[in-house]
């Protein structure tokens, strides 16, 4: 398990990270969200040892993370870049070896990844001749080539079209085994919602919410939406519920428990046709907005 404990980092007077702690559990995708400047990239760079922390530490299975272990991590920085004038196969082999693979193994692994990414016939081309989408593919391959024991991806899907995102996600699911913790940051919340098992929300350098997406999304209160053919104003007089909003036949209300909700539905049916009745799921964007308010 990859953990950060009490990370603090200042840039001059500004506190970029303030006592940040969270876990990234193996075999689960942990989404790292927060507004621009919240400190996501700073935290990731500290995890990768590219930036020093002013307080706290990064742990691997409970022990302080060493350079030796970190070398087996896979990292995709936010601002992309590989060698533009180097051919992509040589480039990936180089990164494999940089992370400790011998040349033969690095080459085998590179060929497998290029094949998987549909770039096998471009192997001898320089990176700069590839389309941006393909460059992004090579970039993720560079993070995966050495079969990393942990993955840290900074905005891995930014700039990709939906199809490319799907392809990338498939690749990640395929390559990342059950022992590998994955941390990725994103500001595309719908994507995070779809992909992530766990969530860490950062705001102004502080963790404001963390945990499994399912738990965070269920929220403390139960909200339902009712649409009837007619006026829904009668809801205001129903005991045990709190109406948030009524507009014509559409109403949004909170209930204390599911039982009360069912009673409301029965009452609605006796009054006339019910067009829609459903619990209103709290969208991630609401959690995000709530948490970072």
């Amino acid at each position: 398990m990859l953990s950060v404990a009490g990370l603090t980092r200042r840039f001059g007077e500004q506190l970029a990270l303030d006592d940040v702690s969270f876990d990234v559990v193996p075999g689960r995708m942990t989404g790292f969200v927060g507004a621009n400047g919240a400190g996501k990239t700073t935290a990731m760079r500290i995890i990768l040892g590219v930036l020093a922390a002013h307080g706290g530490e990064v742990r691997w299975n409970g022990e302080p993370l060493t350079q030796e272990i970190r070398r087996d991590f896979g990292y995709m920085p936010e601002e992309r870049g590989l060698y533009p004038k180097m051919n992509i196969r040589d480039q990936l082999v180089f990164f494999g070896r940089l992370h400790g693979f011998d040349p033969i193994r690095a080459a085998e692994r590179t060929d497998k990844l290029l094949e998987r990414l549909g770039l096998a016939e471009r192997a001898g081309d320089t990176l700069e001749t590839l389309s941006l989408g393909n460059q992004q593919r090579v970039q993720i391959a560079a993070a995966l080539v050495h079969e990393p024991i942990a993955l840290v991806l900074d905005e891995p899907f930014s700039g990709l079209d939906p199809l490319a995102v799907d392809a990338m996600v498939d690749l990640l699911r395929e390559e990342v085994t059950a022992e590998v913790p994955v941390l990725f940051s994103s500001h595309q919340l719908d994507l995070v919602e779809r992909l992530c098992d766990d969530l860490v929300v950062l705001s102004r350098g502080k963790v404001v919410a963390a945990g499994p997406v399912a738990e965070l999304a269920s929220g403390p209160s139960l909200t339902y939406k009712l649409i009837v053919d007619g006026d829904a104003g009668w809801l205001r007089d129903v005991p045990g519920i709190q109406v948030r909003d009524v507009a014509g036949g559409t109403a949004l209300f909170d209930v204390e428990n599911d039982g009360v909700a069912q009673q409301v539905l029965q009452q609605a049916i006796t009054r006339g046709p019910v067009l829609q009745f459903a619990p209103e799921r709290v969208a991630l964007s609401d959690i995000f907005r709530e948490a970072t308010r």
């Binding site: 760079r45 990768l48 040892g49 590219v50 350079q67 970190r70 070398r71 991590f73 990292y75 920085p77 601002e79 992309r80 870049g81 590989l82 060698y83 533009p84 990164f95 940089l98 992370h99 560079a142 993070a143």
Partner: peptide, 17 residues
């Protein structure tokens, strides 16, 4: 500079001293 410009330096620095 090229390594800095392309930010490849982050990947390099994460992997080796």
């Amino acid at each position: 500079v090229q390594e800095k410009e392309s930010r490849i330096v982050e990947i390099l620095a994460a992997a080796v001293p």
